[in-house]
């Protein structure tokens, strides 16, 4: 049995600039991950091939292309189908969680999140999924 791959590169798609910065501080400084921030679903589509993230953190409600559409667009390319995605949203009704999971997301992180424990939360999800 081989050791599970280590989570290193995270792409984060979030339209709110303030929240992007909190995520950057949290994931880079506390979590020690390599992070690429995208302000929209379109940007994420442009960058995903080049960056090759281990994981994508995806906001659900964004103007223009929302989270689920972004996920669909990313997954439409066969070589990107294996990239795990975690949704972030302030809406966490159980039915919605089920819905997001059915779209192929690994898990859903509720907003507001705690920047001090966000990396741990992501790692827990990552480890559980592998």
């Amino acid at each position: 049995m081989t050791a599970p791959p280590k989570l290193q590169r995270i792409m984060c798609v979030e339209d709110d600039e303030d929240i992007r910065q909190v995520i950057e501080i949290s994931l880079q400084h506390i979590g020690q991950f390599d992070v690429l921030l995208c302000e929209s679903g379109n940007k994420a589509l442009q960058k995903v091939d080049e960056y090759q993230p281990d994981l994508i953190l995806l906001d659900v409600m964004m103007p223009g292309m929302d989270g689920p559409s972004t996920l669909e667009a990313i997954r439409s390319k066969p070589h990107n189908q294996g990239i795990p995605v975690i949704f972030m949203t302030a809406k966490v009704q159980p039915s919605e969680i089920e819905h997001y999971l059915s779209l192929g997301a690994l898990d859903v992180i509720a907003k507001p999140f705690d920047p001090m424990t966000l990396p741990q939360q992501i790692e827990t999800i990552w480890e559980k999924a592998l």
């Binding site: 709110d16 303030d18 909190v22 907003k111 507001p112 999140f113 920047p115």
Partner: peptide
């Protein structure tokens, strides 16, 4: 959308009541 964004962000910035 604006209010939704504030709701989601405010808690992270330490303003749970405002959220």
């Amino acid at each position: 959308q604006f209010l939704h964004r504030l709701t989601g962000s405010a808690g992270t910035f330490g303003l749970p009541e405002f959220s």
